[in-house]
Computed example of a mutant assay.
Amino acid sequence: MARGSAAGFDRHVTVFSPEGRLFQVEYAFRALALDNLTLVAIRGATCAVLIVQQKPLDGLIVPETVTRLFSINKQIGCGMIGRMADARAQVQKAVYEAGSFQFRYGYSMPIDVLCGRMGDISQVYTQNAEMRPLGCSMVTIAYDDELGPCVYKTDPAGYCCGYRATAVGTQMLDALAYLDRKYKKNLNDEMTRQLAINCLATVLGNQLQSDDFEMAMVTKTHRPFHILSRQEREEQLDKMIGGSRNV
């Protein structure tokens, strides 16, 4: 976009351009791709899976302190793409909202209610001049007693929606195209996990190793949000059809 086309409208989050665009919100969407990472989430018949790309870390960093997968409460977890400072702030707000709901009503906050609330909060950030849109996107998964396995996504503009399968990040379009071709309803747990791994490996164009991604899931038989260990990721890679780790 040429600088002159913004004509000063990108200086205020609350001012529409003559074309009806909010440039500050568009800049927040661009921030999702700056880390060059991709996240994929898939809902199966009895499970939901999150997989997010992980880049090699500096040798001085403690690997256990760097993650893009977070637990919001015992049942709900999320994956974050975008600016990590904004992502951690949004996760902390989600933890607060879930805790406040449980304290007030005496039961865990449903995932659809939580994601709707987080979308409302993000949308308010696009209305007030003293705030800015958060440069991150939250993808949440849970196994709900009424809805079954769920995948929800919120974006910097505040839009919230449930998905059978979705992707966020640098290779989002390629991942969505792959999922559109390969996704089928009523996938079992193993097929759902393998589809997620295959999708990420395909869009990245290389063979995945256990250190190349993080993975989390919820299932009907194990409803708490569970982040897979390195050994569990290795086991999933070894189960790939024909022993291949790529599609």
Rank of each mutant, 00 (worst) to 15 (best):
G242Y: 03
Y105C: 08
D144N: 14
E234T: 10
T154I: 15
A89D: 04
Y152A: 02
S122N: 09
R21L: 12
E19L: 02
R181Y: 10
G79I: 02
G135D: 02
Q92K: 09
I227M: 13
R132D: 10
R164A: 06
C47S: 15
G44M: 01
F225V: 05
T46L: 04
K185Q: 08
G8H: 01
G116F: 02
F213M: 06
A89E: 12
I141A: 08
A216G: 06
C47I: 06
T219G: 10
D86M: 11
L60C: 10
L204V: 06
F225W: 03
T126L: 06
L173V: 11
Q231R: 11
D211K: 12
Q102Y: 00
I121K: 01
A41T: 12
M172E: 15
V151L: 07
V168I: 13
V95Q: 15
T38R: 03
T170F: 12
L204K: 09
V218K: 00
P224Q: 07
R68L: 05
D144L: 08
S244F: 10
Y152L: 13
V66G: 00
Y159T: 12
R223K: 15
Y159D: 10
L69I: 10
C199Y: 00
V13A: 05
R21A: 10
R88I: 14
T221V: 10
F70G: 03
L147F: 13
L173K: 11
I72R: 00
M80F: 04
H226R: 09
V91H: 01
G135Y: 01
P56C: 07
K153S: 04
C115L: 13
Q75S: 12
L39I: 12
E146V: 14
R233T: 02
V113L: 09
